[in-house]
Amino acid sequence: MKVQVQVRLKPGVLDPQGRAIHHSLEGLGFSGVDDVRMGKLIEIDLADEVSDEQIHEMCRKLLTNMVIEDYVICRIAQEEPA
């Protein structure tokens, strides 16, 4: 089983990387960009018996800073070998 964990800063938390990207886009002439928020994507290959609760526990204990970040878990369909 493969999962993706999308980690984002919680609303209201300052995002210096997002601001730098926003500023750079404006400097390159891109208009219409109202805001940029930077996050991270973590892909994990797991054994089929790993439970959803175990995945959430991984996120809470290691993959995110629960004080300033939120996360979303997405299961990725794996292609069957031909």
Rank of each mutant, 00 (worst) to 15 (best):
M1C: 15
K2D: 13
G39V: 08
G27R: 00
V3G: 08
A20Y: 08
R60W: 03
G12P: 04
K2V: 12
L25E: 01
M66D: 02
Q4C: 07
L25Q: 01
V50R: 10
I73M: 14
I42T: 03
K40T: 05
R75E: 07
E49W: 07
N65W: 04
L46F: 12
Q17R: 06
K61P: 08
A47D: 00
L62T: 09
M1T: 09
D15H: 12
D35R: 01
A20I: 01
Q54Y: 07
P16M: 13
L41E: 06
A47L: 06
I44A: 12
K2Y: 09
V50K: 08
H56Y: 06
L46D: 10
I76K: 15
E49N: 10
K40L: 03
C74Q: 13
I44W: 01
L46N: 05
M1A: 02
C59T: 06
V67T: 01
K40H: 11
V36D: 01
Q78R: 14
K2G: 03
L25R: 00
E26A: 02
Q17I: 00
E43R: 09
Q4R: 03
E57Q: 14
E26T: 00
L62G: 10
I55D: 04
G18R: 04
D52L: 06
V13P: 07
R75N: 10
S31L: 07
V3S: 07
R60Y: 08
S51E: 01
M58V: 09
V13W: 05
D34W: 00
D45K: 14
C59M: 09
L14K: 08
I68H: 14
M58I: 06
R60V: 07
I42V: 12
Q54M: 15
L14Y: 09
K40Q: 07
R8G: 11
L63D: 10
G32I: 02
I73V: 15
Q17K: 11
R37G: 04
Q6A: 14
M38W: 07
